[in-house]
């Protein structure tokens, strides 16, 4: 464990909590892509199956349980509790365009052709595109509430810190996880465009981020 990974995990946790609190306190999920949240719940479910088979550390186990619980709570709030505030017509990204290539690739490119490895690889590839429906919704509606942009900012920061973590681990312990790194870089690239908008729009005190 290094400071980059710890900071990354904390940013990830902060992002998930920001979104959950926003939905809970505003009692609305307007502007939130339910599809992205479903994809994140699938990412955690398929990645943390080793929760019951491999014990790595108390931190690892607790964070996995927390991420699973919070992501399912978010999906529950969107599709059950506040479903009447969910504008599904704006959340129109075709998930099959993401799931089919990701499933195919996880069968082609993996470390071992075993169910656990393929599911882990699937979760890595899926995480890199899971934010697409949310970014698509923002480009479609042309705006995002500032809380949603803070959520995306912390999510992007978590990915950027994970890249720093991989650089650090490569130089200090020669650790290199090719699938995770390639997929993580692709995922972070999606956020770069958003980071630019975030800094030029939201941080300039406009409150709402409106796309040009």
């Amino acid at each position: 464990m290094n400071i980059f990974r710890l900071a990354g995990d904390v940013c990830h946790l902060v992002a998930i909590i920001i979104l959950l609190l926003k939905i809970w306190r505003s009692r609305s999920c307007a502007g939130i892509s339910g599809k992205s949240q479903v994809l994140f719940a699938i990412v955690f479910t398929t990645r943390y199956l080793d929760l019951f088979t491999v014990f790595i550390s108390p931190y690892n186990t607790i964070m996995k349980v927390v991420f699973l619980a919070l992501s399912y709570a978010t999906v529950y709030l969107i599709y059950m509790r506040f479903r009447n505030t969910f504008n599904s017509e704006n959340d129109s990204f075709r998930l099959e365009f993401l799931l089919v290539p990701v499933i195919g690739l996880s069968f082609l490119e993996n470390y071992a052709f075993t169910p656990l490895e393929i599911l882990w690889t699937f979760s890595i590839f899926l995480e890199s595109v899971a934010i697409m429906p949310q970014l698509f919704m923002i480009t479609k509606t042309g705006e995002a509430e500032s809380i949603t942009t803070h959520y995306l900012f912390f999510l992007g920061l978590y990915r950027a810190l994970y890249i720093a973590n991989w650089v650090w681990r490569y130089h200090t312990e020669g650790f290199f996880d090719q699938i995770a790194v390639v997929s993580g870089v692709v995922q972070t690239i999606f956020y770069i465009d958003f980071f630019y908008l975030y800094v030029t729009k939201v941080l300039r005190g406009r409150g709402k981020m409106t796309l040009p």
Partner: peptide
């Protein structure tokens, strides 16, 4: 390739 126990990242 990576062994399962090395997968300690979230």
């Amino acid at each position: 390739g990576l062994k399962a126990e090395e997968k300690d990242e979230l």
